[in-house]
């Protein structure tokens, strides 16, 4: 009988924890229930029917519905329940089992049946129980629950990023960058992903792995090609994005290609994190940037 149970350690713990129970066969099943948290209460035998009904798993159909696919754990439980319910049958031969099954029921069998457990005769379990008929190598239910608990979040969209920068005030005019057509939603590119490694080119060495990041690319269009405020506008956009976005984003702010005389120089300056940090320590410059950000909010 014990060979039916794939987890022999259950016997030992079971005997120690519930010494008052007389029938070893019943204890075997209850241990399996405990092991796989099928029972709701730590001592279900005190009030079996009412306690178990809530957490009961009536049959394998429900099992599969609840966890998607049948796991190895559930197979073990089904086998253990079967062995618990038919202690004599599991030990006897097949022909006598059909007749003697009613007599050989353990005292707790009807309790299990009342609770709605599916109890298969050991000789029929291979045909009737889906968990046995369609074995699966899926991870146990507990493992799957952990995976399911991984936090989910909505990806940040280009529109949301645009909402952050659209109402920055132009340093020279009482208008927002959106009103001046300096920023446009088409020029906002957002890639929001979890960091992952993908294969990439690595010409010099034998190989490498590239990492992809969540990125925000914003291009802006100065009003005139010689706009002296282009660096300041870019700095303000960058500062507001850095303050607003989660730190996983790598922010790039650039001038739209071909719209400014010294486009390359401004882009280089905006990309230099050291210069950006240093600029923000300049109280005058920081004041202007903050006024542009705050002023835009008042315009709206």
């Amino acid at each position: 009988m014990h060979k039916e149970n794939p987890n022999p350690t259950i016997h030992a713990t079971n005997k120690r924890s519930l010494p008052s129970q007389s029938s070893k066969a019943t204890l075997l099943g209850s241990a399996a229930i405990h092991r796989y948290h099928l029972g709701g209460s730590p001592s279900p035998y005190n009030d079996p029917a009412s306690e178990w009904e809530r957490e009961a798993v009536p049959d394998d159909e429900d099992l599969s519905h609840r966890w998607g696919s049948i796991t190895a754990d559930e197979r073990s439980v089904a086998l253990a329940l079967s062995a618990a319910a038919y202690p004599i049958a599991s030990a006897s031969n097949y022909h006598s089992s059909t007749q003697s099954s009613a007599d050989s029921e353990s005292p707790k069998l009807d309790i299990l049946q009342q609770a709605g457990f599916a109890l298969y005769h050991p000789h029929r379990i291979h045909k009737q129980c889906r968990a046995i008929r369609y074995p699966s190598f899926a991870p146990s239910a507990h493992a799957k629950e952990v995976v399911a608990e991984e936090p989910k979040r909505d990806a940040i969209t280009a529109n949301e990023v645009f909402q952050i920068i659209r109402n920055i005030q132009d340093p020279e005019h009482p208008l927002t960058l959106e009103q001046l057509n300096v920023v446009r939603i088409e020029l906002v590119e957002v890639v929001d992903l979890k960091g992952e490694i993908v294969d990439g080119e690595f010409p010099q060495a034998s190989g490498s792995c590239r990492k992809k990041f969540s990125t925000v690319h914003v291009q802006f269009t100065p009003t005139i090609p010689h706009c002296s405020m282009a660096t300041l506008i870019g700095l303000t956009i960058r500062v507001k994005l850095l303050r607003s976005l989660p730190s996983r984003f790598k922010v790039v702010v650039k001038i739209e290609s071909g719209t400014h005389a010294s486009e390359h120089a401004v882009n280089k300056q905006l990309a230099d994190k050291e210069r950006v940090r240093a600029a923000l320590e300049n109280e005058h410059l920081l004041g202007v940037v903050n006024r542009c950000i705050a002023g835009g909010m008042q315009i709206q």
Binding site: G200, E201, Q204, A205, S208, R210, K212
Partner: peptide, 12 residues
């Protein structure tokens, strides 16, 4: 005498 052109995924 050599250049690792993409050593940090294109980042500085």
């Amino acid at each position: 005498v050599g250049r690792l052109s993409d050593s940090h995924s294109g980042y500085p």
